[in-house]
Simulated assay, not measured.
Amino acid sequence: MVPDYNKLKIISGKMRLDILKMGVRCGGDGAHFGGCFSIADLLAFLFTQKLQLPRFPKDEQRDRIVLSKGHASIALYAAMGQVGMLPRAYLDGPMLGENTILYKHSKRNPDYGIEMSSGSLGQGLSYATGMAIALQKKGNTQSHVYAFVGEGECQEGSIWEAAELAGHMQLENLTVIVDKNGLQIDGNTKDIISMQNPDKLWKEFGFDTIVIDGHNFEEIYRAFSLLHKKPLAIIANTVKGKGVSFIENKVEWHQKHLDDYMYKMAAQELKNEYGL
């Protein structure tokens, strides 16, 4: 069934507001607003339309989400909150200290469906590939593994070692989503290590591939509906900071503090744009 795209837009807007609020509570060091906003639409679709989310997070039949670009963990929490995997009390609670399970970089917590501890870039795809192999060996044909990687992160050699193994083993239970937003912590990706046609590269490693607008729900739906007998790489062209004008396409918003004035401006923009 084709999803309600207007409803999905509203959900992604609510997620962005939650990201703002959690990001402010991260304190003076700020939060990774840019990378969180760039994958919000993809996560909104996955969690509300695609994932098999059993009642108990540790159920073996569940789908797995691995956020290799762990600096976007706050976006993951916002998506989990939309489907009740995380209680509102956690989303509205502290982001630092001992009285929380949520951090700027995720800490594995199987009780709540947080599959992986993140922080060191380039590790998540190996983790996800191992998961996909293990599921096959267990005879689990129901579960699927979805791994989010960043465009800059694809400069890590470990990404391609994992991709080579996944392609060789034809892991059809693995989907990689590349957040191609054109920026990384130290500048434009095209100026650092250019990767203009990543779909061709993933294909060389044995993946089926598709290139989409990562903010267009019709294209997102089409990508995640593809039937494939190989691992799938979805190259999602996105806008870093999507939804807030003074954050969009600004490299300095990879990680930055949002003061009260900027928060109010950003929240109002999101409410206007997403009909909240």
Rank of each mutant, 00 (worst) to 15 (best):
Q123V: 00
V178M: 14
Q49F: 07
Q82F: 06
F47E: 11
V211N: 12
F45S: 00
D199E: 05
A132I: 02
I39Y: 06
T141I: 04
K190L: 09
R16C: 03
E273A: 10
H215R: 05
H144N: 12
E273K: 12
E204C: 12
R88Y: 04
N216L: 08
N140H: 11
N216C: 15
I101Q: 13
S194T: 12
I74F: 07
Q142M: 12
E269K: 13
N181R: 12
A31G: 12
L20Y: 07
M1F: 12
L67I: 05
F224E: 04
N249R: 09
Q49L: 01
A266M: 05
R88H: 05
K240Q: 13
M95F: 05
M265L: 14
N6V: 03
N6C: 04
N6G: 07
A79K: 11
K240T: 10
A44K: 05
A162G: 06
T209W: 03
I192W: 10
M169F: 11
F33K: 11
T129L: 08
M80P: 04
A72Q: 03
V178A: 06
I11A: 14
F207V: 05
Q136M: 14
F224V: 02
D259F: 00
L232P: 03
L43A: 14
D191V: 14
K9I: 06
S158F: 02
I220H: 01
L76G: 05
G84A: 12
P54F: 01
D179L: 09
S194L: 12
I101D: 09
A31D: 10
D92P: 00
I133H: 07
M131D: 03
L174N: 06
K9S: 09
D186A: 13
I114W: 01
D179K: 10
E248D: 03
R222N: 10
S117A: 06
D208R: 00
K7S: 14
F33I: 15
F37H: 11
Q52L: 08
E164N: 13
K138G: 09
E252T: 15
G206V: 10
G93R: 05
D260W: 01
A223I: 00
V2P: 08
H254G: 09
E161W: 08
A267C: 02
E98K: 15
I39A: 08
F224M: 03
I192A: 13
E161I: 14
S120Y: 00
A44P: 09
S106Q: 00
Q61C: 06
G152V: 04
E60S: 13
N188L: 14
N272S: 09
G182Y: 06
A44G: 05
M116S: 02
N109Y: 03
A223P: 01
L125V: 10
I185E: 15
V176D: 04
G214V: 09
V251Y: 02
L121A: 01
P87N: 04
A223G: 01
V178F: 09
P94L: 07
M80S: 07
G241M: 09
A78G: 15
T129Y: 07
S106V: 01
D259W: 02
Q52F: 09
H228S: 04
A162H: 12
S126P: 04
H105S: 08
F224Y: 04
